[in-house]
Design a protein around this nucleic acid. Structure first.
Lengths: 207, 207
DNA sequence: TCGTGGATTTACCAAATGGTAAAATTTTAT
DNA sequence: ATAAAATTTTACCATTTGGTAAATCCACGA
């Protein structure tokens, strides 16, 4: 009997929890936490509302589960940034990985964006405990490269912000991008080229 | 008797409509359209719920009014980009105006971001009719500068996306920025310098 | 000062919301 | 096959939601 189950989950449990989380990702990423309803999640999951509450303790539990799972995926591209690799390559590859992730997981990107937009009320602690240490660590790596003259002098913190902003923009603001580029245009190719050329210029910059 | 009033508004009307819109901006920008409640808006405005519905036809009317008013303000910095000015100066000044606006009007930035994040269900038409023509026009200006060799070769559409993304990031993701930079650090000065140096590098780029 | 129309409050309402209890059904191990 | 456990459904419930009707209050010009 699930909810706060300790034993290993049955096949049904595993399947239904996945189905519910997938449905919840659709709804939460589209309407935000307060705008999402259990009925909508239930309907999208093809289950009854009480059935959903059999697998999760409540609305907040579902949301929190999604955010926790997402955090790992989300930090992954930054984790892979290798202090011993070639600086230029490492950063450009990081940009590419972030862009790929935004385009492959737009719902996740929007869920994250929505939570931050609302002041991270349910994710503040995760930011402090998971994101900040990694961020600080990688900032030092980039600062080291910068100091050693391997890349242009640059503020590492704001560089990372710029990478996040420009890549996630294509997921979070997809509705706007689509209108402005035309529904037929696929932004991926051009976006990828633009970002590569842009961050190349920044890392080369001599002033 | 207001609501869809035709005659010129009284002092009380003007004041209360402003108070309501300000309160609504707080609530909508923090919780999104569906997550916002009339009770909350009323409470924040210091008025009763029926009193609010005396001035606006309903929740959607308030939201729509906010978005319409916002659109003008939001396009303004781009309107000011002068085709006859010095390209480098014009673009860097545009970046600066966008950053200033994000830091001075964070609620407006978040309201806008939230609406786009949710697929622009109530603003799609405005994007097509107001934003797109201006966007296309300014893209051609930049493309002209690029073709004339006055700035580096660059994709104008994605350049503008990058400007929007990097500047609005400081308003929309303020919760994250605050955690990562430390609550005591004021991001404005460093962000401004970073963005100026970054976009300078891009516009100078020879490849 | 008094009437009139604008402004506000009180008292509601139907629908939707997150959630629960318990009965009914299905799965699983024996 | 059958009992026990896991799963799902049915029938609710209290609260909140957007919104309305009507009574009341109040400002202000004649």
């Amino acid at each position: 009997m699930p909810d706060g189950d300790q034993k290993k989950p049955s096949r049904i449990q595993t399947r239904n929890r996945l189905v519910i989380l997938d449905a919840a990702l659709n709804v939460f990423s589209q309407h935000g936490y307060r705008g999402a309803t259990l009925d909508q999640i239930a309907s999208e999951a093809g289950l009854s509302k009480p059935n959903i509450l059999y697998y999760f303790q409540g609305k907040e539990d579902i949301h929190l589960t999604l955010l926790s799972q997402l955090m790992e995926t989300w930090l992954d591209p930054l984790v892979e940034l290798d202090p011993d690799g070639d600086p230029q390559t490492e950063i450009l590859d990081y940009v590419q990985r972030k862009l790929d992730m935004a385009l492959e997981l737009p719902r996740e990107s929007r869920l994250f964006a929505g939570e931050i937009l609302q002041g991270a009320p349910r994710m503040g602690p995760h930011l402090e405990s998971d994101l900040k240490p990694l961020f600080d660590q990688k900032c030092e790596v980039i600062a080291g490269w910068s100091a050693a003259g391997k890349i242009a002098p640059i503020n590492p913190q704001h560089l990372i912000f710029s990478i996040w902003a420009t890549t996630q923009h294509y997921a979070d603001f997809a509705a706007q991008v689509t209108v402005l580029l035309g529904a037929d245009t696929d932004p991926y190719q051009t976006a990828s080229e633009h970002l590569r050329s842009m961050f190349t210029a920044i890392l080369r910059n001599k002033a």
